[in-house]
């Protein structure tokens, strides 16, 4: 048990002294995670609007597919994107493998189904009268969709945060597509895995604590926003 407490004490020291290695991993994770969430949001939210607002043949099947994709194993995504990006793969000539861009591609694939699926539910649960009220008050289709977005924004932000939570905590894609290069593609999760296997328990613990703190803070801020609205 002693090594756990020792580990915690040292990890706190590493955080307080802003250890360079720890901070680098945090920076890479935040940078890559935010960018993938942003791109995934740009794809998912308009798609969610299209799907939620229309009834068409095969909608139920599409929803089932999207829901299934929410549980995509990260290593499977890593493997598939790896096959495309590796030097002999169809996109090999871009030289993206083991770059932050490769992680972003993989993470966007992970985040899109989650943000889309929760987004569809969020938009679907917005009062039907919002759209109709906007239309009868002179809004065009785009303005009416914006009204729906604004009225359902708390739930839509929840979808985006769920997406961010997924990518910041995943390891499969970051490891397989990023290659865990120190200072470049080493994220918090890959650093934790590496330091644990190397036996530097306290360093791994320090990063894990920060990761937990980040996820906790984001949810806290979100709940605050939600509280203010209700």
């Amino acid at each position: 048990m002693g090594f756990i407490f020792e580990g915690i004490a040292r990890s706190l020291h590493l955080i307080v002294t802003a250890n360079a290695e720890v901070m680098q991993a945090v920076a890479v994770s935040l940078k890559v995670g935010s960018l993938s969430t942003l791109i995934a949001t740009a794809i998912s939210i308009p798609s969610a609007f299209c799907i939620a607002g229309r009834s068409f043949k095969g909608k139920r099947l599409l929803l089932t597919v999207i829901n299934t994709l929410m549980g995509l194993p990260t290593v499977a995504v890593g493997l598939i994107v790896y096959a495309f990006l590796s030097r002999v793969g169809p996109l090999g000539r871009f030289g993206l493998l083991f770059t932050p861009a490769a992680i972003v591609i993989g993470q966007v694939i992970l985040a899109v189904p989650i943000i889309t699926a929760i987004g569809i539910t969020a938009i679907g649960s917005v009062d039907k009268r919002v759209r109709e009220t906007a239309l009868t008050l002179g809004a065009n289709a785009k303005q009416a969709s914006f009204a729906v977005f604004r009225e359902g924004r708390t739930a839509i932000f929840a979808a985006i945060i769920a997406g961010f939570g997924r990518v910041i905590a995943e390891i499969g894609v970051a490891m397989m597509l990023g290659g865990n290069i120190k200072g470049v593609t080493r994220t918090m999760t890959t650093a934790i895995a590496l330091e644990t296997s190397r036996g530097d328990f306290s360093l791994a613990l320090a990063i894990a604590l920060i990761l937990l703190l980040i996820v906790f803070s984001i949810n806290l801020i979100f709940q605050r926003l939600q509280g203010r609205r209700s």
């Binding site: 009062d127 009268r129 919002v130 109709e132 009220t133 009204a147 604004r150 009225e151 609205r229």
Partner: peptide
């Protein structure tokens, strides 16, 4: 104007 009108937030 609906019977139970919706007011925006």
């Amino acid at each position: 104007v609906m019977e139970n009108p919706y007011l925006f937030h």
